[in-house]
């Protein structure tokens, strides 16, 4: 005789991995929306710097090495998107570190929530913010004379690029959050991102740089992503521009997400 034991209804109602991830993503997005003080700087500062640059470097676009471009605004928008997304990605990862610091992460681990959804949810929040930032920059700058030669399709490619960059950097910063468990350490990565941004062609073309500085900008993948985005703004959508603006960050994402998942597993193994 075989006894049939009914499973508790709570187990039957356990949400799927997708549903759990969605809930975690929603939490990450709502947390960002509820703390404007953390979000606003990564929206305002890139615009401020671009406004400064448009006035300060208006005559620089005629220098040898600059592409043919109508204004510094068109030239600099790709750098502004990169700047905003880089600095915005730190915010999401710092929130993960705060979860670890205040014990919420441990309570999540103690609950029957699927482990990947914790990190994937957080990264999805970062991606949503990256996409929103890119749309925000484009919408705000259009009335000031921004001309995206790639049109709507070009705008969509830029949003895809911004989303992937935020995933890439968000995963990298999440790895740091999981390893250190310190929001201060994550915030401390800010100078690293500053260097990554400034030692690239974010604000001036690589062709105008010389010596070691030019070499470093040449090794920096950020330069190529920005140049792909810039080509979409200045010249329109092309296969080569899409490869640099979308495929390079996509390839980097594979690497950084794997690193983040590995750090997550290590933290879980440590208990």
């Amino acid at each position: 005789m075989t006894a049939v034991v009914a499973r508790p209804s709570s187990v039957d109602l356990e949400p799927s991995l997708g549903a759990q991830t969605w809930e975690m993503s929603k939490r990450a997005i709502i947390a960002l929306a509820r703390q404007p003080a953390l979000v606003v700087p990564s929206l305002v500062f890139p615009l401020f710097f671009l406004a400064l640059g448009s006035s300060s470097f208006a005559r620089a676009i005629n220098l040898p090495g600059f592409p043919e471009v109508d204004s510094y605004l068109d030239f600099g928008v790709a750098g502004a998107i990169m700047q905003g997304v880089l600095f915005g990605s730190v915010t999401g990862a710092a929130a993960l570190a705060t979860d670890i610091e205040n014990g919420f992460f441990d309570r999540l681990i103690a609950s029957p929530v699927a482990r990947p959804s914790i990190i994937v949810g957080r990264l999805a929040g970062a991606m949503a913010f990256g996409a929103a930032q890119t749309v925000f920059f484009l919408v705000v700058l259009l009335p000031f004379g921004l001309n995206v030669e790639g049109g709507v399709l070009g705008g969509l490619v830029l949003v895809a690029s911004g989303t992937l960059i935020s995933l890439c950097v968000g995963a990298l910063m999440s790895m740091m959050a999981l390893r250190t468990g310190s929001s201060e350490a994550v915030q401390g990565a800010f100078p690293l991102l500053f260097i990554l941004l400034f030692f690239s062609s974010a604000f001036f073309p690589r062709q105008t740089m010389q010596g070691v500085y030019g070499d470093l900008a040449g090794y920096n993948p950020v330069s190529y992503i920005i140049e792909g985005m810039r080509d979409i703004v200045i010249d329109g959508v092309s296969a080569w521009a899409v490869v640099r603006a979308v495929l390079i960050p996509a390839a980097l994402c594979v690497f950084t997400v794997l690193l983040a998942m590995r750090s997550m597993n290590k933290r879980l193994a440590r208990g």
Binding site: F57, R59, A60, L63, P64, F194, F199, F203, M209
Partner: peptide, 25 residues
């Protein structure tokens, strides 16, 4: 340290990035 390192990084980064700006008449 940030108040010491930041101006160094800033001076190096700006002078490298905007190297060509000196060519503006």
């Amino acid at each position: 340290l940030p108040s010491l390192l930041m101006p160094i990084i800033q001076a190096v980064a700006f002078s490298g990035t905007f190297f060509a700006v000196t060519q503006i008449p």
